[in-house]
Nucleic acid binder design. Structure first.
Lengths: 242, 242
DNA sequence: CGAGTGATTGACTGGTGTCAAACCCTGTGG
DNA sequence: CCACAGGGTTTGACACCAGTCAATCACTCG
C-alpha cells in the first residue's frame, strides 16, 4: 500500500522501527483525499480529528493576517505530515492548503492514539517527526530574521531540494517547487519585487533556476554555501546530498 | 516539591490530568541546576540526555550564525521546558542559555520515556507541550517576517506578558524581561537602533515600558492591538488576561 | 573614581517596499 | 487559427524605512 510505504520511508529517515512496527503501520486505515491546486485542506479554527500524510503534490501551512494576506510557514511534500501539529491541539492555529493538485491520506486521531498506546516506539517516531517539524520552524525564524534576501532564498531552495532528494523526488537535478514569486515572498517575508531581483541574481550566477514550478539546481555546493545551508537541523540519519 | 507544582501548574494550562498522573509527576527525580546570567545550559551539537523545567529565571534558545552572531528563537520562563525539543533528537540543533540567574530542574530522558510508557496520557501532555512550543515558533515566523518593526516589538511584549501572567509572574502590571536592546534585536530580527526607536514610540504612547529588565504594561488592550496579538496560538484552556 | 556595558541620539547610506507599466505565456472562445 | 483575457513575470522610478557608523550619556560595579 502506498500510505504504508510512504510513511515508512519517511519515518526511517530518522527512526529505527522493528518488523512489528512496520506491520502496524501497514495496517493503518487510510482515507484518501485529493486536493485541487489552492484548495484548503484544514482551516485555522477547525477542530482537527485526523492527521494526514502527503502521498503526492505539495501542501503548505499558513497564517492568515489582518487584511487577508498570508504568511506561509512551511512547505510539505511526499511523506510529510502537514497537519501533525494538530495532533493534541483543540483548534488549529493555522491553515493548510494545497499548492498544486495533491493527494493525502488521513488517519483518525483516535486510531493514532490507540497505536501510540499499543506501540510507544511508533508514537515516539511520530513525536520525533513533529519535533523535526519544529526544528524546521526554528530554521525558518533564523532564515527570515537574520539572513539577507539572497541568502534567504538560497537557503530555502537548498532545504526543499535536500528534502525532495531524501524522499526520492529529485531527478536530473530537478525537483518540484510550485510557488509563484508572490508566494515565495509570502513565505520568506519579502516583497515579490525583492524575490524577483534576487532570483535573477541566482539565475545569472548559474547556481539554480526556478521555472514552471520546477527548481533546477545547477551547482549544489554553491547553492548550499550561498544559503549557509547545513542540513543538521533536519535530523536525518543518512545524509544523501554531498 | 517545587518541580512537581511548577510542572503541574504549567501542564494543567492545556491538559487534563488525573490524580494518578499528578502523583507520578510528583515522584519524578529532580536534578537541580543553577545557571548564571549568560551561561549556556546546553549547546548546539550536544547529545541531550535529559530535559529540564525552568523553576526560576529566564532562558532562551538560540542559533549561532556564521560570524558568531546569534538569532534568539524563543524565551522561557517558569514552567517551560526550554530543551524539550531535544527529547527524541540525537543532537541539539540549537543552544539554550540563561538570560539572567536562573534555576532549572533536569529529568533524565530514560526516566521520562519510562513515564510515557507507563502513563501515555502524561506523554501526550508533554507532547502537547512541545506542540505548543512549535505554535510559538510559527507565530515568531509570522511576527518576524510580516509585521512592521513596532508591531513586532508590541507582539513580543504582549506574548511574554501574557505567558508570565498565566504562570503567576505578573504583579502590578509588571513582569520580568531581562533582555538588552541588542538581544531584543537578535530575537526580533532587527538592529538595536530600530529596536530603540520603536521602543521610544511605545514608551511615549504610554502603552508599555521596558526598564531594568522589567516590562511594565500600562495599557494592555492597546498593546495587544498594536501587536495584533491573539493568544489563541498559545492553546490555553483558560485565558487569564482580558 | 575610572572602566565597562548598555542606552540614546544624529547623520548618512543602502536595501527594500510601493507604484506603475509592459511583457510573456497559457487557456479560452469566436 | 487568431484574438483576447488573465495571471504571472519582468523592469524602472522613486520614496522611505531600517541598517551602519559614530559619538555622547547614564548606570553599575569593582
Amino acid at each position: 500500500m502506498i500510505l504504508g510505504e510512504t510513511m515508512l520511508r519517511k519515518l526511517k529517515q530518522h527512526s529505527r522501527l522493528d518488523a512489528a512496527d512496520e506491520t502496524a503501520i501497514r495496517q493503518l486505515s487510510c482515507q484518501l483525499r485529493e486536493l485541487a491546486d489552492g484548495e484548503d485542506f484544514i482551516h485555522q479554527g477547525d477542530e482537527p480529528r485526523s492527521s494526514a500524510v502527503v502521498l503526492s503534490g505539495t501542501l503548505a501551512r499558513y497564517h492568515t493576517l489582518k487584511g487577508g494576506r498570508r504568511q506561509y510557514l512551511s512547505l510539505h511534500i511526499k511523506g510529510d505530515w502537514p497537519d501533525a501539529q494538530g495532533l493534541f491541539i483543540d483548534r488549529m492555529d493555522h491553515s493548510v492548503c494545497a499548492m498544486e493538485n495533491s493527494a493525502v491520506c488521513s488517519i483518525p486521531h483516535r486510531e493514532l492514539i490507540k497505536l501510540f498506546r499499543d506501540r510507544p516506539t511508533l508514537g515516539f517516531a511520530i513525536w520525533r517527526e513533529t519535533l523535526i517539524d519544529a526544528a524546521i520552524f526554528r530554521e525558518a525564524i533564523t532564515n527570515n530574521s537574520s539572513r539577507s534576501g539572497i541568502r534567504r532564498l538560497a537557503h530555502f531552495f537548498a532545504e526543499i531540494y535536500f528534502r525532495s532528494d531524501s524522499i526520492g523526488l529529485v531527478s536530473e537535478n530537478n525537483c518540484r517547487l510550485p510557488l509563484t514569486q508572490t508566494q515565495l515572498g509570502e513565505l520568506l517575508g519579502m516583497s515579490i519585487i525583492t524575490v524577483h531581483r534576487h532570483l535573477q541574481t541566482i539565475r545569472k550566477s548559474r547556481v539554480a533556476d526556478l521555472k514552471g514550478g520546477n527548481l533546477m539546481v545547477r551547482n549544489w555546493s554553491k547553492l548550499a554555501a550561498m544559503g549557509d545551508f547545513d542540513p543538521q537541523y533536519l535530523h536525518m540519519r543518512v545524509q544523501p546530498l554531498r
